[in-house]
Nucleic acid binder design. Structure first.
Lengths: 220, 220
DNA sequence: ATTTAATAGTGTAAGAAATACACATTATAT
DNA sequence: ATATAATGTGTATTTCTTACACTATTAAAT
């Protein structure tokens, strides 16, 4: 009547125009040498969300990361030694925050690596299914959630925002129509700052106003 | 590192113009005498979905019920004796199918009763939160899912369909606009049959064409 | 036979949102 | 000066959403 209880994290970021997911190369039975989602057991007196935060910190060196529960996976045959229930979470990080961070490689994994979600290796357990669930979730909610802004630095150009939308929706958008829509959202602040270090016309920077966003979505 | 593992079911139906949820009066510690969602332990070699189907059959006498996983709840303090992880499911049934069915009252519960979701009693554990999650989920997905039709008999009038939409969205809709929209869905069949047993003009009956529905949503 | 009560069923105009589409502007590097 | 590479902008068309009120049909009551 009892079961092992783990959490698995789909840690996503936006880099080089693509969504990427952080995978760990396993160094343990089962699925030794396979790539898998980072995850671990939840301790007896530990809240599930704290366990997620713990894993996220270990994998990225970051705290206070955006996270969202995806679903529970509990197939009897997930693990050869018997049921291990996992609750999958999705977490979103900005590439700049995690680049070049030194992270704790535990003994159960050999290395961590970012993979484009379009070019995933074979994955341990049901982890491919879990990643696909997270991508579906993102696609469905992109227009009504903070997810695009979790993937971007706090100041970003409209072109960058459009690229994130395109990656999340997996389709190209029209520039003028996109900007028209974005202008009507009401929760983006136009800054008086410009992109730096580019060898062409610098784009204007924008910021996400979380308070205005929340006001809007609590009203509806 | 192990935890108890249960499932809880938010069993919803549409009756008397309202969404109703099936609750069980507990006869056991903790929350003895409180109302709670029907649920139970998942057996060691039992798939989670089979456990849900088992509970649904015990509570309603029905098989092959629509079900959808909501989320996992695993708070350390949910249960006074230590963590009991529950995976919450939502299930939808038609009132006609469950009315007057004799169901198995287990020893852990005293009675089963349908409550309008607008007039819930105090609930055991975090069960109110679970019900609210299911209502939110329904509200968000009503336009893109089969849920309205799971709550209706296979032949229904447009007025009945509108009432279901209104209950799920928790707001009144305009009759003409609703019918215009419904006409454009493309997956409703107009039958050459009419409502019976009413003391006023009988309404035309419609049926949901699941195949057409799935075709549409697989294309998109 | 007529009336009453209750719900079914229907159209149009105005406004809002979504789509399709192309070129001048600006900053930097050479 | 020129080339390059990306920024930033408007309009016309179509589609969807919203607001709104009366006639038609049936069964029951008189």
């Amino acid at each position: 009547m009892q079961t092992y209880f783990t959490i698995d994290c789909v840690i996503l970021t936006f880099d080089e125009g693509q969504l990427k997911v952080l995978l760990a190369e396993r160094n343990e039975y089962p699925y030794k040498d396979w790539w898998a989602l980072p995850g671990y057991f939840v301790n007896k007196y530990e809240e599930m969300e704290d366990a997620v935060a713990r894993i996220l910190f270990e994998m990225t060196g970051l705290k206070d990361i955006y996270m969202d529960q995806l679903a529970a996976f509990a197939g009897v045959k997930r693990h050869p030694e018997g049921r291990i229930l996992t609750v999958a979470y999705m977490a979103l990080v900005q590439m700049e925050d995690v680049k070049n961070k030194i992270v704790a490689i535990s003994d159960y994994m050999r290395q961590l690596k970012w993979f484009s979600v379009d070019e995933l290796p074979d994955l341990a357990f049901d982890h491919r299914e879990i990643i696909e669930l997270s991508l579906d979730r993102l696609k469905k909610t992109v227009g009504y959630s903070t997810t695009p802004y979790e993937l971007l630095p706090s100041k970003f150009t409209l072109t960058q925002l459009q690229q994130v939308y395109e990656a999340l929706l997996n389709k190209k958008l029209d520039k003028r129509n996109f900007r028209k829509k974005i202008n009507n959202l009401g929760y983006l602040k136009e800054l008086n700052e410009f992109q730096k270090g580019v060898s062409y016309r610098a784009a204007k920077l924008y910021a996400f106003d979380k308070k205005k966003f929340q006001k809007q979505f609590n009203q509806d």
